[in-house]
Design a protein around this nucleic acid. Structure first.
Lengths: 256, 256
DNA sequence: GCCAGTCCACTGGTCAGACCAGTTGATTTC
DNA sequence: GAAATCAACTGGTCTGACCAGTGGACTGGC
């Protein structure tokens, strides 16, 4: 911005706990404190930062609510550094839907966009390694489905497949957001869908869908891979959103 | 999930400040405490919840870091309820990039996806009101550009236009995420781009681009509207990402 | 020497009480 | 009536204390 546009910016007071939190956050984000490492104990931080314990604790609380650290009473090693994850994102997205600021239909439409784009990019940028990884995961899903195990193990492998696709798309952000949205959706309507009547048939259909996706990605057919994701989500969720929102999902489907 | 799949889930201790924060958050998200309303003072909350002040303060800190409330020393009205916003999202996204877990290229690629999809849906779902709103904003941008005002005012109107498009797309989530990503990008490379050599020419080009977008949206040409967003972002940012990431941006461009 | 059990120093979680700087609105003063 | 003053608040911070729980050191028996 030009200098005359806003010569000075208002100065807002910076609280002590903010500066403490910033210092720690910077070290975590810069990699100086990698995931798995430990922070000093609270009383040690008190003497290092030269502030009271309540200030340190408020700072730690902020970092914890951001998902950067985790602390446990009685742990002589101090709080554990977790690093950046998608948890915070999915939490924020969950709040958006819980507040009815955005509907379930929008959430699923958004997921259609993300997964479609993930597939599209994967079809374009995937390596051979990516393809074998995905094929292996599909194989595992098939064997799980045949073995008649519970849905939980199947869903986990399913999530791994989507993660493999996201990795092949070479965009971490896309993958993290897709996972966050996925988690938010699950949190909202898990109970409605969890006990599908015929789990076996559902798993078989899911395996089939994933095979189609893999084939499109292998063939480098980006538009088709994208469209597959959109269609699958539409078919799966269309019945679970309010009728008013159904048009949204359909709109995301057309010539995308 | 089937009952035999995981009959019991581990029980983790719930801290007092968490329950306090949850109670308040629930009331905010349910709309019982709308944005602009006030929370009781901390000492009042202490007596209402029956916990110590530090517990109340840690809870408020969590809510504040989630962007749900804002407190100011000396305010006799108590903390202000802000409601859900995109700030929290952009903060999380900023952390992702600052931690080098995802690059600037990925961020911009993601923005290409979001804005393209926003345009696409807007082209399909826009109403006449949406169109006039957008046209007005473009007109305002043009007059600002002609008047030779600073970039700041121009950028604000630009942001309003994108918001209008997001609104026309009938997906709040898409708009909020797009704004969050936009903010994250700005935070990272604002200083690099802020003082463009020829602001006037840049603004003129921007107005022209927005007119093309509006025309496509008005015509209902969804694919073209989407492609316009991708191309504009590519043209604007391609030079600012590392060469290794340039292929990412290009990949997001092709037959999308 | 090894393993069980005990014990204790220490952790984070919580509370109570205090002080400070800053805001606000009523009160006083001119 | 406007300006200065004041007192009753607020949130921000610090101190010191207690608790339940953890984990390593210590101790006992084998």
């Amino acid at each position: 911005m030009a200098a005359f546009d806003a010569p000075f910016t208002p100065v807002e007071p910076v609280r002590a706990y903010q500066r403490v939190a910033e210092q720690i956050e910077d070290r975590i984000l810069s990699g100086e404190l990698p995931p798995g490492s430990r922070l000093p104990g609270e009383r040690e931080l008190v003497s290092q930062f030269g502030v009271g314990r309540s200030t340190v604790r408020e700072a730690l609380r902020v970092l914890q609510s951001a998902g950067l650290i985790r602390s446990r009473p009685g742990d002589p090693l101090g709080a554990e550094v977790l690093g950046v994850s998608a948890d915070n994102l999915s939490q924020a997205l969950g709040r958006l839907t819980r507040s009815h600021l955005c509907s379930l239909g929008e959430l699923i439409q958004f997921r259609m966009v993300l997964e479609a784009e993930s597939n599209r990019l994967a079809a374009r940028l995937r390596t051979e390694d990516d393809l074998t990884r995905m094929a292996e995961l599909i194989e595992r899903m098939r064997s799980l489905a045949d073995a008649g195990t519970g849905l939980r193990a199947f869903s986990e492998t399913d999530a791994l497949f989507h993660r493999a696709v996201a990795e092949a798309s070479r965009n971490v952000l896309l993958g993290l957001c897709a996972r966050a949205v996925h988690d938010a959706v699950v949190e909202i309507i898990e109970h409605k869908i969890a006990n599908v009547a015929d789990a076996a048939a559902w798993m078989a259909r899911s395996v089939e869908h994933h095979e189609q996706v893999l084939a499109a990605i292998r063939a480098g057919d980006a538009p088709h891979a994208a469209q597959l994701a959109r269609r699958a989500l539409h078919a799966y969720y269309a019945d679970h959103v309010e009728p008013a929102d159904r048009a949204l999902l359909t709109a995301a489907l057309e010539d995308a």
